[in-house]
Amino acid sequence: MSSPYPFLAPFWTDLVPKRIKNDRVSYRVYMDKSTLKNANIDVQNFSRTPSFQAKWMLVVTWYNTSVISHEDHKITVQCILITDHVSTYTIYRFINVSISDVGSKIGIGFNNGTSLSNPYSFTTSAYRMGTHIGNTGLFGVWFYTVTPDKNNCVFGTCEHEGVCEDLYRDFQCHCKPGFKGKRCQTDINECLAQPCDNGTCDNTVGSYHCTCFLGWTGKHCDSEENWNNTVCSREEVCCKMSPYKSHEETDSGIVAALSALLAVVSLSSLALAVLTCHFRRQRIPEQKNVTEETYENVTVTNTTEQGSSIYTNLQLSPNTSK
């Protein structure tokens, strides 16, 4: 069974599926978990690999197929190929193989770069494979490891806590955020993406840190902070107050200052009015009654026109002006 190409040979001879009386050759691919579960049990038992989990299976069946020129010599054979994409196994099932010798050579084995032959290959015993106990301890069932592969993750291949996935003759590292590379050996410089809106970025191993400018806070320095340490988002409007005074203290201080200023202005106006009235009385004594009436009218008129808190708070009136 020499060949430059890999092959499987469960029963290599001239077989003729004539599609009469239900004889046929068929194949089917399985990837559903329920079917693969049974394949897992077989591989785990036969290969003594308890961790094997199949991902793909091919089943090829020669059912009631006749040996060429001997239609009454029918056999039923299955070739099952099972893989987890790392290691691949095959099972030869000689379900109904017990016929007389018709003189044809029958090869049983496989070639995956290295040829392997069944002990009954090219012997007359090959016609009765269903009656022989296979290497599995079961009649007519033979199990072979087609593509053995070591576990490429056993040496802690991935750095920085990356998770290693074993592949056929290879491995793949699934890196944690912040790392990249075949073995997760390269630290990603997150600062290249400029994640800090209002601050400076410092790259760290597997991460980064934002040092915010004055008045900004948050992981990305994207939240404005007022003087009372109340964080304001971009959508909110915050009044920045003095770090030493509360809102109430500042408001009362402003009111007190304005009140004092207005009191000075009011007293000045009052003094000026008194002096003016005094000089008028000295210059035109005979017009005393008219002047007083005029002052009263002017004062009342000013109160109405100004309408400010100065006059209201001080409760100025013509009577207090006299």
Rank of each mutant, 00 (worst) to 15 (best):
1 M>N: 08
2 S>P: 10
6 P>E: 02
10 P>E: 01
14 D>N: 13
16 V>T: 15
17 P>N: 02
20 I>K: 07
23 D>S: 05
23 D>K: 01
33 K>N: 08
40 N>H: 04
42 D>S: 15
42 D>R: 06
43 V>K: 01
47 S>Y: 09
49 T>K: 07
54 A>N: 01
56 W>M: 12
62 W>V: 06
67 V>Q: 04
68 I>D: 11
71 E>R: 09
80 I>T: 05
86 V>A: 05
87 S>W: 01
88 T>E: 02
97 V>D: 00
104 S>E: 04
105 K>F: 10
113 G>N: 09
121 S>D: 02
122 F>S: 10
125 S>W: 05
128 R>E: 07
128 R>H: 07
134 G>S: 02
141 V>S: 00
143 F>L: 00
143 F>Y: 00
150 K>P: 00
150 K>N: 11
150 K>Q: 13
151 N>A: 03
153 C>Y: 01
168 Y>I: 04
174 H>S: 14
177 P>S: 07
186 T>W: 12
191 C>D: 00
191 C>P: 00
191 C>K: 01
192 L>Y: 06
196 C>D: 00
199 G>Q: 03
199 G>R: 04
207 S>P: 00
210 C>T: 04
213 F>Y: 11
214 L>F: 12
219 K>Y: 06
232 C>N: 02
233 S>W: 03
233 S>C: 06
234 R>L: 09
239 C>I: 13
240 K>M: 13
249 E>A: 05
250 T>I: 06
251 D>N: 10
253 G>W: 11
255 V>L: 11
264 V>T: 15
265 V>T: 14
267 L>V: 14
269 S>W: 12
270 L>E: 05
276 T>G: 08
285 P>L: 11
289 N>G: 08
293 E>C: 06
294 T>Q: 15
302 N>Q: 15
305 E>T: 10
305 E>I: 06
